[in-house]
Simulated scan of single mutants.
Amino acid sequence: MTPAAASNDAPGRTPDTGLRADAERNRDRVLAAARHLYATEGLGVSMASVAREAGVGKATLSRRFATREELINAVFADRMDAYANAVTEALADPDPWHGFTGYITAVCAMQAADRGFADVLTMTFPAAKALEKRRADAYNAFTDLITRARATGYLREDFDDRDMPILLMANAGVINATGNAAPDTWRRLVAHMLRSFATPDAPLPPLPSAPAPAALYRAMVRITRPRPS
């Protein structure tokens, strides 16, 4: 038996990563805790809160993820893949305008499903190389989608690729503000924005209803309450 084989077969180690089984479980707990906290509270959650939620010490967390960017990169890798794949699917749509509007709606829905991801799409993380590469891939494909949508005559000529991050920032703000009080409010915002991007004769789905007055009031009250530390 070679030394490498002996190492891989050693008790308490996983053959694919070489990490001890308990260390691998700790990593999985940290990722699960971070996903939950980021999804429900956004990226403002501290590393200490993640460690506490995972039931591990700060030293254990730092051994697995030395920086916040490393943790964010690991947590959102699959979502960034889905984000990049969404524009690929939109480009494959035989109707470029439908592909464009469908992509806008799909990405904003991804934000609504995960508050942490809503923040990720409006921020940059230079140290998270894999995450930023997928963002760049999606951006480059989106510029192609714009060109195709413009050629239909339904997308305004003055639409700019920089309008997309503006929309994502606005959508993230609505999602964070309304929370569970008026969770579908983002749909109306996106529908209004699509109307602002479109030429007068562009086909668009019906405008979703505005939130009920009571729901909007609850959202406004929610904004005024201090967040727990």
Score class of each variant (00 low, 15 high):
Thr2Gly: 13
Thr2Tyr: 01
Ala5Tyr: 12
Ala6Gly: 11
Pro11Asp: 11
Gly18Cys: 09
Asn26Glu: 14
Asn26Phe: 11
Arg27Pro: 04
Ala33Arg: 02
Gly44Leu: 09
Gly44Cys: 05
Ala48Ile: 03
Gly55Asn: 09
Gly55Ala: 07
Lys58Leu: 11
Arg64Gly: 12
Glu69Ile: 04
Ala74Val: 00
Met80Thr: 05
Asp81His: 14
Ala90Ser: 05
Leu91Asp: 00
Pro94Thr: 03
Asp95Trp: 03
Trp97Glu: 03
Gly99Leu: 01
Gly99Ala: 09
Thr101Gln: 06
Ile104Leu: 15
Ala113Thr: 05
Asp114Met: 04
Gly116Ala: 10
Gly116Ser: 08
Phe117Pro: 09
Ala118Gln: 08
Asp119Ile: 00
Asp119Gly: 10
Val120Tyr: 15
Leu121Trp: 04
Leu121Asp: 08
Thr122Gln: 09
Met123Phe: 12
Thr124Ile: 04
Thr124Lys: 11
Phe125Glu: 08
Ala127Asn: 13
Ala130Tyr: 09
Leu131Asp: 03
Glu132Leu: 03
Glu132His: 02
Lys133Val: 09
Asp137Lys: 10
Asp137Phe: 12
Tyr139Gln: 13
Thr143Asn: 08
Ala149Glu: 00
Ala149Gly: 04
Gly153His: 06
Glu157Phe: 03
Asp158Tyr: 08
Asp158Trp: 09
Asp163His: 15
Pro165Lys: 11
Ala170Glu: 12
Val174Phe: 00
Asn176Tyr: 07
Gly179Ala: 05
Ala181Glu: 14
Ala181Cys: 06
Ala182Arg: 01
Trp186Asp: 07
Ala191His: 06
Met193Trp: 13
Met193Gln: 13
Ala198Arg: 01
Ala202Ile: 02
Leu204Thr: 02
Pro208Lys: 03
Pro211Asn: 05
Pro213Ala: 13
Arg218Asp: 15
Pro226Met: 06
Arg227Ser: 13
Pro228Ile: 02
